[in-house]
Design a protein around this nucleic acid. Sequence first.
DNA 1: CTCCATACTAAGCGGTTGCTTAGGTCTAAG
DNA 2: CTTAGACCTAAGCAACCGCTTAGTATGGAG
Lengths: 206, 206
Amino acid sequence: MTTTSSEFALLDETWSSVTPPAARRMLIAAAAAFSVRGYHATTTRDIAAQAGMSPAAVYIHYRSKEELLFQISRIGHATSLSVLTSVSEVDPAERLAAAVRAFASWHAEYHTTARVVQYELSALTPEHLAEVVELRRRIETAVRDMITDGVRAGAFDVPDVRGATLAVLSLCIDVARWYQPSGRRTPAEIGDLYADLVLRMVGTTT
Amino acid sequence: MTTTSSEFALLDETWSSVTPPAARRMLIAAAAAFSVRGYHATTTRDIAAQAGMSPAAVYIHYRSKEELLFQISRIGHATSLSVLTSVSEVDPAERLAAAVRAFASWHAEYHTTARVVQYELSALTPEHLAEVVELRRRIETAVRDMITDGVRAGAFDVPDVRGATLAVLSLCIDVARWYQPSGRRTPAEIGDLYADLVLRMVGTTT
DNA sequence: CTCCATACTAAGCGGTTGCTTAGGTCTAAG
DNA sequence: CTTAGACCTAAGCAACCGCTTAGTATGGAG
């Protein structure tokens, strides 16, 4: 089964850096399959079928099934990091709110990719995991810096910066677990809701 | 490999209703294996070996590998529901704080079980999933009722009760994903941190 | 036209999977 | 001692796994 829905048109933005096109189609098929059934329960035959090719075609473009997972995880982490850090606001509260809005809604919009990114880390080889862990460290640092800036500016009241960072990231990431497109909230609405809740958590001195 | 560490002594409380003892040992071994490798990546041979028995022994006590998962999921959900609802406080803020403290620290202390409970729902048969979904509905209702009570009593300021319920549950559940015993916070400390953050989210008019 | 690299498929290999079958061992009642 | 039944194992089956090999179709360069 090949797919050409708008969901996958959007996903193509995320994967636009992957060439050749056949390799990209294979990655998108793998991300879709992994997110539905999980990495271990997905067979290389499932992936190839979803991409409209034979099982052997997987190994033209990728060394192994694990390399497909690694590319999804690497690109997914890099994308979510850039979503988080490309906010332009300067006021600490507005900046944190914008970052949370973007980060949370990304995890809803791309929950398919985000699930693979968040729940299949243990299936990576130690070398690939190390590369991904470094991206995760940068994501955590980005959020912690925003909260620290707000505390220094006297805009936030946070007794435990590390704890607040943990909670903010956790809250946004977990959107990928429960979000479903048929639910009652759009990704943008979730972003707005979460931006408000996070500002309350950091005790904005409105 | 059989285990007799204190972690498993604690787990035995959760599984104390399971008899005979051999069936209980098998369930505990399955929960440990599922939480480390995931349901699909765990083989019946892994489970049997961890329980110190032969692969065939699994099928003396359980119809299938999926039934092991179902029993873990059912008992795990029931336990976390009882943790959430057995708080004795009456003041809305104290009550919600106590519930969050208990629920969040449970997801840390029993992260092994909680991971299976939260991340392997899609491996259940439709009939078994329906039974578990009903327990999850009751968990959500319990939290929503606590927030609604606080709003009615004028103790909370919550513009979106459903949204706040979602966020509180999501925050606590996600503890199971990131918690590790070697980390810098104990389950009790996580409970205290989260109780405080949740009271800020619901805008307690202290 | 020939040549050759790229992109793909059909077929299948060795190994592993969930689960079954047939049979052995223990305890305790008669 | 015999017997019943609960509990467990050794061995293995059919199906499926990730991945490989050998070979085919295509299209551009000389």
